[in-house]
Structures are given as structure tokens and as C-alpha cells.
């Protein structure tokens, strides 16, 4: 049976009618009109569905939507403001961190979270992004992008 589940998505309150065990991923994509978060495997292996839930990085394919009740959800759609990309987005664009783009939303969310909470990955960027598979880049340009994002931020660029 479906339930009414409310949470904030990128600062806006949303209410979805969803089965409680439906993964948050589908609630976002189909019920909350936010298809920027991608399906890649449905089993927490690829990280394409990565979002930030109450300031923690999670795979939205493994979160039953009932557990998102009242939570603060941040997705790729919420990063850029009206006229500026987030530093991580801009860095991925400049550095060639995105190729086919399907892992990009999840990868960027992991990157954003890493810049907010570097202490969560003592091993640095390779550890911070180890849950996000990319098949196009070999990760080289993604590492470059993360360096660039730090530069943009320290030069006063957008990113929180």
C-alpha cells in the first residue's frame, strides 16, 4: 500500500505517494520529477544514484523511501544556483571529468560531499569516490576535476 511521504528536496518540500519500500531513487525520478539522479545497477555497486541525505552520502537505490520521511535530500538538480555552476560542476566541465555523463550526477554529489567533509575520506579523492564507478574516464580527469574544484572554491567560487 502506498504512503504519503514528505521530505525536502534541494530545499523545497515535496510529498510523494509511494510504497514505503520503494527505493528513494525511483521516488526522486518518477514521483518528485527529479530524473537527474541515475539508475545504474539498483544494488549499491555503481553509485550513479548517489545523493546527499541529511548531509550524508548515500546510494538512493538502497534507501527505502519510508526512511527518507522528514529528511533533507540534495541531488544534482540543486547544486547550481540561478547563474552559476557549483565549483565541482564547473571543474568537471572544464577538466573533462564528464564523458558520457551517466555517472556524473552521482560522481559530482560524491565530490561535493567530499569537499564539505574531507575528514570522511582520509585516503583523499580516490577513497571519497570509490563508490562511484565511471567506465569512460579511467578516473584521471575526475581526479583533475576534484583538484580544480578545490582551486575554484579557494578562489571564492560557488559551492557549499
Amino acid at each position: 500500500m502506498k504512503q504519503t511521504i514528505s521530505f525536502t528536496l534541494n530545499g523545497n518540500s515535496v510529498t510523494v505517494e509511494s510504497h514505503p519500500m520503494q527505493p528513494l531513487l525511483y521516488a526522486l525520478r518518477e514521483d518528485a520529477d527529479a530524473p537527474g539522479t541515475k539508475y545504474g545497477c539498483g544494488e549499491g555497486e555503481c553509485g550513479a544514484c548517489t545523493v546527499i541525505l541529511n548531509d550524508e552520502l548515500v546510494m538512493s537505490c538502497l534507501v527505502p523511501v519510508v526512511q527518507a520521511e522528514g529528511a533533507r535530500v540534495e541531488t544534482i538538480e540543486g547544486l547550481a544556483n540561478a547563474d552559476e555552476l557549483h565549483a565541482v560542476q564547473q571543474a568537471f566541465l572544464e577538466s573533462g571529468g564528464a564523458q558520457c555523463g551517466i555517472c556524473t550526477p552521482g560522481m559530482i554529489m560524491a565530490g561535493v560531499h567530499h569537499l564539505r567533509h574531507p575528514e570522511r575520506a582520509p585516503g583523499g579523492v580516490p577513497e571519497a569516490l570509490e563508490g562511484n564507478l565511471c567506465r569512460c574516464t579511467g578516473y584521471t580527469r575526475i581526479f583533475t576535476a576534484m583538484k580544480r574544484a578545490k582551486e575554484i572554491l579557494s578562489a571564492g567560487g560557488t559551492g557549499s
Binding site: P35, E77, L85, L93, G101, T104, I108
Partner: peptide, 15 residues
């Protein structure tokens, strides 16, 4: 820069 890059980094690209 990748022409469709902005769509990809903002999640607006449509698969």
C-alpha cells in the same frame, strides 16, 4: 569545452 557538458554536469541531460 564539451558542448553538452553543462547539461551533463547539471543533471539536465536526458537519457
Amino acid at each position: 569545452l564539451r558542448k553538452e557538458g553543462i547539461d551533463k554536469v547539471t543533471g539536465r541531460a536526458r537519457y
